[in-house]
Amino acid sequence: MSRFLKRAYVLFILLMMYAPIALLMVFSFNNSKLPIWSGFTLDWYIKMFNNAGVQEAFMYTLIIAVLSSLGATVIGTFAAIGIHQMTGWKKNIIMNITYIPLLSPDIVIGISLMMLFSVLKLPFGLVTLIVSHITFSIPYVILSVTPKLKQMNYNLYEAALDLGATPGYAFKKVIFPEIMPGVIAGAFIAFTLSIDDFVVSFFNKGAREETLPIKIYAMARKGVNPTINAISTIMFTTIIVILLGINIRANKKAKVLNARK
């Protein structure tokens, strides 16, 4: 394959992936409901900000993402530390249970939790959404903290104890700083998963409490609506900025580490 062909192929793939997103963004500024360019406008953004339903959904999305990622990170981090101490069949069983939400289809997680909540007679709403988001996020936190625990030198913790630190103090000063990158990565994954989730939320939403993806789905089913383009533009831009920021920071860090060597 010649160099030109390779470049063309890469370009073709990127075009397929980004052209629809770019066009969606362009048409969010279009002064017409039809997909024909007829002048610049911010009307759809104004409409979006004035739409009470969208505002509410946006607020719920953020609340759920913050609380569920926080919950999943705390439970998941402690779980990873605890599981790391276990051995044999107990550890195997627990790790297999942890893999269940990773391997089972979203729709099965969604409906199985829905059945649980209706059997428990828990009213669908904020609580069911947060609990379901924590449930599908925890495995990702555990899997991102565990490698850090494996890399850690256990003797450091014992040394701290020998030197008179209380277990709590040694945990705070020795273990926690070591696993911190894994914890932050896990929290970030949990947050993004929560914002992104559609399927599980779809089955566990309340009559009024719904997230942005669900709101968009309801709007999209009614047909073309440039307000959706405006919401999508904002969501895409936010994600791109966050991810690029993290990537640039990681690159800088890598450069600093390389320079130190």
Binding site: I75, G76, F78, A79, A80, I81, G82, I83, Q85, M86, I94, I97, T98, I100, P101, V108, I109, I111, S112, L113, M115, L116, V119, V131, S132, I134, T135, I138, I142, Y157, P167, G168, A170, F171, I175
Partner: peptide
Amino acid sequence: MYRKSLAYPYLIWAAIFIAAPLLLI
């Protein structure tokens, strides 16, 4: 502080929200 028992909250969580829903199916 560095014990197996740290995983217990997760075990309870997993039993209620991972295992029980599957058994319900």
